[in-house]
Nucleic acid binder design. Structure first.
Lengths: 352, 352
DNA sequence: TTGTAGGCGTTATCAG
DNA sequence: CTGATAACGCCTACAA
């Protein structure tokens, strides 16, 4: 492995000074076109690449944006994948790279690693994806004035910049839709308690139930963990009730997929005997059989937008600010249908 | 944002020279214990963190390991997720960070970005996950002597270090198992042509068919793309054949999931009328209904091992070498069963 | 238009 | 054990 060429090498090779070389290669004014050409040629010949480290030392910038997210919940998911696609779209032109951090690792959340990350200038800023509401590191970050944007979770702390979707509206959409199909026995499978968005979705459902004065047994309010398995188990509990629901609102698509599996296992047909809705509109939602009625949220767009926000802030050398609620929409597919007045339970269904 | 403390600040504060401070904080010998304590105290008071950039400039090391992989195929998948978990397990103690690169981005594969990545010292080495066999960048990398380990794909080029699983053996396992259950009409759904592993799996199946002298119609050899959709479509083609197979060997789990959906849509019961096998043993395989008989490959282990390999090589300042084929094993679950001599097709099944 | 001097924060080297 | 000096590769500021 041979030593890489430096500006000095180029300078020596073509008889200019380091400085002229620097100016020429950075495309800055004040260099004779002729000189520019000579220098460019020399650079090519020596296979020169600027040392990004040396630049960083000058700028006090690392050129790296950190992506921090709970791995166990997200890293294999299409949700995160879509967000990433959004990120990379936004950063394509920016010469910045993405580094990945697991917020679930002790050292990260505790803050020990975190302080270093930024103070050692390993990252210029952070994109935080779907943090848990009990994550300690966000407070640390705020105190250190680290430029950061939170994606996919609206936070109560007004000083933190975030981009999320309108959770309440989404849940209202599906609930309303099921209601309009005649469903009155609607159950809910929520997400993990440590996500603000999950809490908001649950609250929206509760509000809806109240507004429509539906009288639902407590067992209709289940909690999952945004995994297939969690959805399956919660649905199983629901579907084994003597007075089982005719529709299930799942707090995300994955949970809905799990619920669909439980129904299938129990021989309950979708949507004839049971309607199911999701939330997120992951690519899979349209590909499953039956396809899933769900709430579309512009995940990739959110990724792109948040990355842009951060880049702009970094460029202007200030902290990103503000909160954005992205619009959601109802996507009707095959997993929902009109309510049949009587289901197959032994006892006849209660009249609403 | 206040200027960060430097070694100079500490030196001034406690009356030692920069050099002594450096030695003390790096825990190197040749510093009086008393001095050590004083310096440590000063560092704490000033909230000092070493500048990793300045260190890099000295070491000619960036402290970053790049992870390069085709995003569209992998980034939302549990396969990649498992590999990542392995990586992070291996790097937990190492102070290195992971940066992410999309091999499908033009600038990357073309090599323009790539050369820079390493020559600018943005990364010390690369972990390349499941590259396509037609990826040009690998050749570039080899020429530049970039330390790299390829995970999940065995490559023909002997000079590149890789860790993969024993594809042939895996396919032989499932084929053999289906055969032992009495299946003779076994179809295959392969993976994308631009993956060496997919080619090897297909070849293993063909070899098996030949060894057993099975006479299968050409339509029994399908090609998917390792997606649910691809699996579903290929399976649909198979199941609509007048002489349809009694078993399907899918080249990965995802494809198998798709195939299972097709069967369900067509009202074909698994495993009574159709046996299906996968490959990978993703976490989902055991959670689907019915659960999937498949080939287990130690994905996380592979991730861990490859990261370790790279770290060792970096520490010893040489290129990682060698090829590792990880063992695979057959995992029997619910998606396979004995062959019934007559299936529901109108015409009676041929005798084997 | 070009060049010189100096600094970014750390560490290697060698002298005290 | 401690410290002065130089070097890593680039860029800003200023001078010619």
């Amino acid at each position: 492995m041979i030593r890489r060429a430096t500006m000095n090498d180029i300078a020596r090779l073509c008889g200019f000074s380091k400085m002229t070389v620097s100016r020429a290669l950075a495309g800055r004014p004040g260099v004779r076109p002729e000189a520019r050409r000579i220098i460019a040629a020399a650079a090519t010949k020596l296979r020169y690449e600027v040392s990004w480290v040396a630049q960083s030392l000058n700028n006090n910038r690392s050129g790296v944006v950190g992506v921090a997210t709970p791995w166990d919940g997200l890293i294999g998911s299409n949700f995160l994948a879509e967000i990433f696609r959004g990120f990379s779209r936004a950063m394509d032109e920016s010469a910045l790279e993405l580094a990945l951090f697991n917020t679930e690792s002790e050292s990260f959340n505790h803050g020990s690693k975190l302080a270093k990350l930024y103070r050692q200038r390993k990252v210029d800023g952070l994109l935080v994806v779907a943090p848990h509401s009990d994550d300690a590191f966000l407070k640390t970050l705020r105190r250190l004035h680290v430029p950061l944007v939170v994606v996919g979770e609206g936070l109560p702390d007004a000083s933190i910049c975030w981009i999320a979707c309108d959770d309440s509206k989404g849940i209202t959409f599906v609930s309303q839709y099921l209601f309009s199909l005649g469903h009155r026995k609607i159950a809910f499978i929520g997400g993990p308690e440590n996500l603000n968005s999950a809490a908001r979705r649950r609250k929206a459902f509760v509000d809806f139930v109240r507004a429509k004065a539906l009288r639902l047994p407590p067992a209709y309010f289940q909690t999952g963990d945004y995994t297939i398995k969690g959805g399956r188990e919660a649905a199983r509990r629901l579907l084994k009730l003597s007075d089982r629901p005719t529709a299930i609102v799942a707090a995300n698509d994955i949970t809905a997929f799990g619920a669909m599996e439980s129904a299938r296992q129990l021989g309950i047909s979708i949507p004839d005997e049971l309607s199911i809705t999701g939330f997120d509109d992951l690519p899979e939602a349209s590909e499953r059989y039956p396809s899933l009625t769900t709430v579309h949220q512009p995940v990739r767009e959110m990724g792109k937008k948040s990355a842009k926000l951060l880049l702009t802030a970094l460029a202007e050398n200030k902290l990103p600010k503000g909160h954005t609620k992205m619009p959601v929409s109802l996507v009707v597919r095959e997993s929902t249908g009109p309510c049949r007045k009587v289901n197959r339970t032994m006892r006849p269904a209660r009249e609403p």
